[in-house]
Computed example of a mutant assay.
Amino acid sequence: MKKIIYILISVLMVSLSACKTDAKKAVNGKLNVVTTTTMITDLLQNIGGNTINVVGLMGSGVDPHLYKASEGDVAKLVNADVVFYGGLHLEGKLVEVFEKMERTGKKTIAVSDALNKKELIGSEYFASNYDPHIWFNVTFWKQITTYVTNELKKADPKNAAVYEQNSKKYLQELTKLDAEVREKINELPQDKRILVTAHDAFNYFGVSYNFNVVGLQGLSTATEAGVQDVQELSKFIIENKVKAIFVESSVPKRTIEALQASVTSKNHDVAIGGTLYSDALGDKGTVEGTYIGMFKYNVTTIVNALK
């Protein structure tokens, strides 16, 4: 992996040095924006609309923690006017690439910079010391929307009014989303709000909506769950009479299936309540392929399974 990153950085630096450091608009005059995760891609598409060209490096079901940059990513990054990424070490080794790019004059922006670090969830086990799954706090996502909007306005002042208008509309939709989510979650008694998933992607969700969230793996899927982890969590499920546990779209389901088998071996039944979207949105063109659609789908799946 280190060799791949070194090669990517080397090729990228040579390519960037051959280009002008000022903005290189596409033939159609639009700002070229490259994003990493599907959540950030969706956000830029909502704010930029038809005014920008958005190219996402990662697709549906792609785990950003384990993402390996390809040779094709070099061309995308070289041709970008602005690069938006999550930060907080969400994208693993890609952060090294973005930092190198920034030093060459290429504009790279970590959307997590919009947030007050004091409000983030810390972790002694994760490299950044912060939980990077910030999109599961709608209030955070609204702050990030405003931050990204301002960065687009700086990069492309002539279309500032368009970005501002689109942002205002999207912020209203996010406010409505939060209200709808809270209404749905209120169908679930507090003692049933225990969310067991493949890895710790839902901690911000838990804080926002009063859920006790337990992940089989850590904050990063790069950490493997061991036999002891499975045994301890199966004991927790039985003691708390948890009705259902959940698979994640970007994490192999074998970990949750192993947990279910462990619970069953102790003469207790626990269902797999469905698949949640954690580190990536659903397929493009589907409701779950948007941030708002994904959030509603997750909440409906969780509430219906735990009732």
Rank of each mutant, 00 (worst) to 15 (best):
R193Q: 05
G215C: 07
A271E: 13
Q228E: 12
A225Q: 07
G218D: 07
Y209K: 10
R254F: 05
I237N: 00
D269A: 06
E224M: 06
K266Q: 15
F202E: 08
D200M: 04
K253H: 08
V251I: 14
K192C: 10
Y209I: 12
F211H: 10
N203G: 14
K243R: 15
H199F: 13
P252S: 12
K266I: 04
Q190Y: 07
D229P: 11
H268G: 09
E232I: 10
G274C: 09
V214L: 07
S220T: 15
E224F: 10
G215E: 03
F205S: 05
N203L: 10
K241L: 08
Q228T: 15
E248T: 05
L195P: 04
D200C: 12
I194M: 09
G274A: 06
S249Y: 07
S262R: 05
V214H: 02
S220N: 13
A244W: 00
L233N: 00
L216A: 12
D200V: 07
S265G: 14
F205P: 01
A258V: 10
D200T: 05
L216W: 00
T197H: 01
F236D: 01
Q190S: 15
I256H: 02
L233I: 15
F246E: 08
V207N: 12
R254L: 03
F202G: 06
L276D: 02
A261V: 02
T223I: 04
S250C: 11
K253I: 11
S278K: 05
